[in-house]
Design a protein around this nucleic acid. Structure first.
Lengths: 200, 200
DNA sequence: GCACGATCGAACCGATCGGTACGACCCCCT
DNA sequence: AGGGGGTCGTACCGATCGGTTCGATCGTGC
């Protein structure tokens, strides 16, 4: 409960606060499951402030999705690079990170893909496309380092495992999804790059 | 445009007509993207008729999803059994069928999973869970026939590929999704059941 | 031949939606 | 000291939503 009436913090701080609170609410309740008034009450901001910062509800949604896409992909990429140089280790780390995410109590699937599903018009769908593109780039790096015969193909297949695991974890089987997907991903990697051993 | 005012057809026929028309509209526009009034106009039925048959919009949605789940899974299973006795052929046929689906001009992802994403309350999510369960059963049969070391694991991995391919085809890369997923599925099958050849 | 059941079309309801307007407040800067 | 900008809270707007009701209509089975 920082601010009182007039603001002491700079507007950028206000904007970030709205963004952070809206991210959770829109994810949990769905884009159409929470109204702007309710959003403002939970955020602790007035409608006027929200609309000055984001222009419209869709503007707020777009900002939320862009920020979340950047943060999530960065988090996954960090987990991968922290696992060391070996492609198999990096790939395993990606799915281990997903497993932590799936285990969170209010896991609800991929927020960006979910949003694109709920909005058939442009903004959300475009963001989802670039979001998947970011994943594909990261997986493509792993595939290339593993000297896969067709790194692009392997990356697209790994992306399907990643998104499929997320869907299955959301709608069917939360417990084993990440581990199952990890095993499948490592099997695909081994099949696509049989020449590479773990020589130093 | 069969019926005029009073009905000559039996109520079951009316119900089926509403169901069929609503299936397409709700899929294309999303569950919240089309109102009941618009739905009635497109269907050619009055609100009173719709509400007598389905009770509520959610009741209509549930009926649409149940019917679609049964029809889709039956269609995929038919494609698999028509491909012959060999597990690899049946698995390939599944993803070939998915490829036909992805290529349809108004493909929008899996209607049941999409609906479950849009509705955080019970009915749609429960239907999605049983829908994935049906897929899992079919894939489990293939895995078992292939004498996979762990048929349940393989089936869950294949399910992720199926759902992941659908997500990717919807939001990123429609063209190669099915073929990429098919190759990955066959590779997983070969890895999980290396003993089995195609002896007669 | 007549009542019954299914249907239509349109009016209607309260609720809620996204978005705007306004007066009051308070902090920062000059 | 004082003014301007960011904010709050609330009231308000038109539109639309899901759902109900009602009179008129028409085919079918008794």
């Amino acid at each position: 409960m920082p601010v009182a009436k007039g603001t002491s913090l700079d507007p950028a701080r206000t904007r970030e606060g709205i963004l952070a609170a809206a991210t959770g609410l829109l994810y949990r309740h769905g884009l159409d499951g929470v109204g702007v008034s309710e959003l403002c009450r939970a955020v602790g901001a007035s409608k006027e402030t929200l609309y000055r910062h984001f222009g419209s509800k869709d503007g707020l949604i777009a900002a939320v999705l862009e920020e979340r896409s950047a943060r999530v992909t960065h988090w996954i990429a960090e987990a991968a690079t922290a696992a060391g140089p070996r492609p198999a280790d990096r790939l395993a780390a990606v799915f281990d990170a997903l497993g932590e995410w799936y285990a969170e109590p209010d896991f609800r699937g991929c927020a960006i893909v979910n949003a694109a599903t709920q909005r058939h018009a442009d903004p959300a769908r475009a963001i989802a496309a670039t979001h998947l593109g970011r994943y594909l780039t990261m997986l493509g790096d792993i595939a290339a380092d593993a000297e896969a015969a067709d790194p692009g193909l392997l990356a697209r297949q790994l992306l399907m495992l990643l998104e499929g695991a997320t869907v299955v974890a959301d709608h069917h089987d939360t417990a084993t999804a990440a581990a199952d997907a990890k095993a499948a991903a490592l099997a695909l990697l081994a099949t696509a790059a049989p020449t590479r051993k773990q020589a130093p």
